[in-house]
Simulated scan of single mutants.
Amino acid sequence: MADRINVGLVLPDVLGTYGDDGNALVLRQRARMRGLDAEIHRINYGDPVPETMDVYTMGGGEDTAQILASEHLIADGGLTRAAHAGAPILAICAGLQVLGESFRASGRIVDGVGLIDATTAGMQRRAIGEVASTPTRAGITAELTEPLTGFENHLGATILGPGATPLGKLTTGMGNADEAALLDVVDGSSQRAAEGAVQGNVIATYMHGPVLARNPQLADLLLACALGVQLSELEPLELPSVDRLRMERLA
């Protein structure tokens, strides 16, 4: 197992509206608590995206920020190459939409990076409030066993294609799309309780919080993937304050 973790924080200057930068901080801290050397590398708008990071995180932003992020990531290609090389990627909210096939922003359809088989249009009403789900344990998330919890705040109706699987099955909240957005979807019934997406080594979700602060098992799964080991091989961390926070939110 490697003794160093490099966390790539992707475009925090344009996709940093909702405090999702905190996910990179959680990864760094949980790695350091296990005696690993861990550093965060900020990859700002206009910077080339290095393909050498062990794990990548990207957050949420508004329409203009989404368009800028998508155009930059498509033109640069570094994140796509890193994904194809097997690096785990966590994308939040607008990050989910940007990594999809297309999304609606500023009144038009914008091409996404194409790492997730998903398209995003608009919802009739905003999804806002607590959201919780049971992990589907699809693909890279097979070892997840604990409920997922976060805070959703979006107007995007994300429909998953056959290449992607939901990250979680909703128990609270709206998730990826409202009923109106699913009316014309052939397999709409299977997506009514969908939250987030998993495809290859990409994990995407609408959960803010930051999501990794509220879901330490998910954080450790990303660390394990970055280290090339199983989640069960990581030394457990005893953090009672985090456990209390989870109990409060899940209640």
Rank of each mutant, 00 (worst) to 15 (best):
M1E: 11
D3M: 11
L11C: 10
L11Q: 08
P12Y: 07
P12R: 10
P12M: 12
P12D: 12
V14C: 09
L15A: 04
Y18T: 05
D20M: 05
A24M: 09
R30N: 03
R34M: 07
E39Y: 12
I40T: 12
H41R: 15
N44K: 12
P50N: 09
D54S: 11
Y56N: 04
G60S: 07
G60P: 00
G61K: 06
G61S: 09
E62G: 12
D63P: 10
D63V: 03
A69G: 03
I74E: 12
D76M: 13
A83Y: 07
A85K: 08
A85Y: 00
G86L: 13
P88N: 08
L90F: 07
I92T: 03
S102L: 02
R104T: 07
A105Y: 04
A105M: 04
V110Y: 01
G114R: 06
G114K: 08
I116F: 10
D117C: 04
D117S: 11
T119L: 04
T120V: 01
T120S: 10
G122E: 13
R126F: 08
A127T: 07
A127Y: 01
G129W: 12
V131Q: 01
T134G: 02
P135M: 12
T136I: 11
T136F: 11
A138R: 07
L144K: 05
E152Q: 13
G156D: 05
T165L: 13
P166S: 15
L167C: 06
K169V: 15
L170W: 07
T172D: 13
T172S: 15
G175H: 01
G175Y: 00
A177S: 09
A180F: 03
L182R: 10
V185A: 10
G188T: 05
S189N: 11
S189Q: 10
S189D: 14
A193E: 11
A193G: 10
A194H: 06
A194Y: 02
G196L: 04
A197H: 05
M207L: 15
L212F: 07
R214V: 08
N215V: 14
P216M: 11
L218V: 10
L223M: 14
A224P: 00
C225W: 04
G228R: 05
P236S: 07
E238G: 05
L239G: 10
L239N: 11
L245I: 15
E248D: 06
R249L: 15
L250F: 15
A251F: 01
